[in-house]
């Protein structure tokens, strides 16, 4: 299965990844805040992920890593 890893402490809750993700089910805002007080995004359901890398491309913090299962 493909994998999306979000660096929780770098996330600033801009929601670009949530907005541009073509599947909309993979990422979700967490219920707890990180050290800086943001509700960081986390990867919840990887079944639909096609590893397109759009979430990582639009992330201004470089907080997202995308790996494709080959």
């Amino acid at each position: 299965m493909n994998r999306v890893t979000v660096n929780r402490e770098m996330c600033k809750e801009c929601e670009y990844c949530l907005h541009f993700c073509p599947k909309k089910t993979i990422l979700k805002k967490s219920d707890t805040v990180n050290k800086k007080g943001y509700y960081a995004v986390e990867a919840v359901d990887m079944t639909d992920c096609i590893a397109c890398g759009i979430c990582a491309t639009v992330c201004p913090e470089g907080a997202i890593m995308v790996e494709k299962d080959v």
Binding site: C14, G53, T57, C59, K68
Partner: peptide
């Protein structure tokens, strides 16, 4: 697993001071 995207190696681990959603982060990354 092959890496599709990861933070560039030329970046330090410094926390970015830009506000959330600032375009500077995207341009720096590119």
């Amino acid at each position: 697993m092959s890496i599709v995207y990861k933070r560039p190696e030329v970046f330090t681990d410094e926390y970015m001071k830009y506000c959330g959603g600032c375009g500077h982060g995207i341009i720096n990354k590119v």
